[in-house]
């Protein structure tokens, strides 16, 4: 079973990489971009029937650093 995990910076946490990407987009002539936030996408292939609690624990214990990041789990 494929599970998608999206890890994003919490609101209010400065994102220097997002800022740099934003600058580069402007440099390429793409105006009208208000803000860019960079995150991480992780695809897990887990046993069918893996519980929500286990997936949540995987995110909280390793995949995201909850001091600075939020995560969202997307099941098929």
């Amino acid at each position: 079973m494929k599970v998608n995990v999206y890890v994003t910076l919490k609101p209010g946490v400065l994102d220097p990489q997002g800022k740099a990407i934003h600058h580069a987009l402007e440099g390429l002539g793409f105006g009208g971009v208000a803000d860019v936030r960079a995150g991480r996408f992780i695809e897990l292939d887990v046993a069918d029937g893996t519980s929500d609690a286990d997936l949540d624990a995987m995110c909280a214990k390793l995949l995201a650093n909850t001091v600075i990041e939020n995560y969202r789990i997307e099941r098929p």
Partner: peptide, 17 residues
């Protein structure tokens, strides 16, 4: 140490990159 939660906070990419 921060990742192990033995210290508070986190260390992110330098602001100037």
């Amino acid at each position: 140490l921060t990742e192990a939660q033995l210290l508070p906070g986190a260390l992110m990419r330098n602001a100037g990159l």
